[in-house]
Design a protein around this nucleic acid. Structure first.
Lengths: 287, 287
DNA sequence: CAATATTACGTTCTACGTAACGATT
DNA sequence: AATCGTTACGTAGAACGTAATATTG
């Protein structure tokens, strides 16, 4: 039977609509529909039924999902087994020391992501670029950068910078004139975040004492020492926990960074493609 | 992961060589090799190792097979489930009343072959052809026939006619001059088998009393009443059991019939192709 | 109009078969 | 020489994406 289509059917079932599922599964939505239609036509069963402009699983569809759960749990176990036995070299990944470093590390060095072995190297953009050229690392993960224009790239995620505060520190919407009432947490000189704030050039912005890491900045923010400009991805769980709120500031610069996975085009190793796909997939799952 | 390649790897593991496996799996042997190489390269594992001009599973390969057993048992269960829920019509199969009728029925109506529903109709060649034209049956299974030249066809198996006897009835190799010492079992007039014997035109051949069915003929043969010209496919298990032997007769006509599955070309139903494939597969498995 | 699913169609790439080659007995 | 497995290469078809087309709220 067509286990390829069945896998898409199974994976899609976790999302409320095929459209949303298709985004997460990195496939166009017509292609996803096709997989499901394939199964339905091959076996003469109805897996989904129309429900307004949505579709919902039929009882047969639900039964099938249950069986698929057993099936693909075993398939994943097998993949894990093979990765454990793999003689492939670990993938050498380069990162820059930036705001999102810990975040990316957390995704790559993760219990649920044990499917490929990874070796991390950090450095500034120039160093990482050099390592990549000399093939001392296999890939680099960093925001879009001119230094990497001549490498192959695969987009991993978009990261927007947003302001965080303790929920009691200020309103969740501030006008320009209100800015003087609050402090902004100052990151280390030269850091991307700090550069953005410096370039903002708002006359009435005052800064807290300088901190060196994201963790320190968060601590200050939690104790109502100021507003903190932070990666939206890192902010997500913080906001969800209720300990922090997003603060929208009138006319503040909207900064979005697209993070890419860069690598040499001539990378001809067969399994390289699978590595790229799995990393990309892991990021999509997490974000 | 690539479950398509994994399935071929698993299915192939039941055969002593990839060459033999490829025949049974209806795939060329380079293609089968490719599937296994794919897995090996994707995951950086060695599944087979060279062993003279053969290859044998490595310990990792063997472990993988064990895990695959669980996986594909579940996959087969799911396929079975879907077939049970199927709203597809049963496949209407036409057969002629010929020597191999029971044999074909046994394959199609079989506990292990519950994957598709089947409805059998029997008749003479003309009737079956007419039913097929009028789409009262979906497919016909019978030896190559001019009446069916304008239908689409898919070869199922080759059937050769061979002589059987009780092991004590005669030698397993007879010269022309020895024929007069033995009887030949006579099937019903007009039957394919009997036509062959009639056309043989050996002056010194004598016949037993006429029988009407394969079963009757076998009984006579078992009780040493004569030699029986029989489908090699039906004969296989009889010879293996030791109750019968094959007798090679000098200059006897070698009659081979290719059995085909005939159907209308305009058969556009999506699942039809899968049915054809499964029937074809079932025949290959059995023979 | 916005959000969803479906249909149509052209393109890319995988899976496959054929044929030639290599290795072992 | 026969029997496997492997490599090379061209081709058919599947899988996919884009774009256009329903359908519902």
């Amino acid at each position: 039977m067509n286990l390829h289509s069945l896998r898409y059917f199974y994976d899609a079932s976790f999302y409320p609509s095929l459209t949303e599922a298709s985004h997460h599964l990195h496939i166009s939505q017509p292609a996803l529909t096709k997989h499901i239609k394939n199964l339905e036509e091959d076996y003469g069963v109805k897996l989904y039924e129309k429900n307004g402009r949505h579709i919902t699983l039929t009882s047969i569809g639900n039964e099938l999902i249950k069986e698929c759960h057993i099936l693909f749990q075993q398939a994943d176990k097998i993949e894990c087994f093979l990765n454990q036995k793999s003689t492939h070299y670990p993938l050498k990944v380069g990162l820059t020391q930036l705001n999102s470093e810990e975040f990316i590390k957390n995704i790559l060095i993760n219990d649920s992501f044990d499917s490929i072995k990874i070796e991390l190297t950090t450095g500034n953009t120039k160093k990482i670029a050099q390592l990549l050229v000399n093939e001392l690392i296999d890939v680099a993960i960093l925001p879009e950068s001119d230094s990497f224009a001549h490498f192959e790239k695969e987009k991993l995620f978009s990261d927007e910078l947003i302001f965080l505060s303790h929920p009691d520190y200020c309103e969740n919407h501030l006008s320009k004139s209100q800015l003087s009432d609050y402090q902004f947490i100052k990151r280390e000189a030269g850091s991307f975040i700090q550069e953005i704030l410096n370039n903002w050039k708002q006359p009435n912005v005052t800064f807290s004492n300088q901190v060196a890491t994201h963790a320190e900045a968060l601590l200050l923010c939690e104790y109502k020492n100021g507003l903190y400009l932070c990666s939206s991805i890192q902010a997500k769980s913080l906001i969800d926990s209720g300990k922090f709120q997003q603060v929208v500031i009138e006319n503040s610069p909207k900064i979005t960074r697209d993070f890419y996975l860069y690598f040499n085009k001539q990378q001809e190793i067969k399994y390289f493609k699978r590595y790229i796909k799995q990393i990309s997939h892991e990021f999509q799952k997490t974000i």
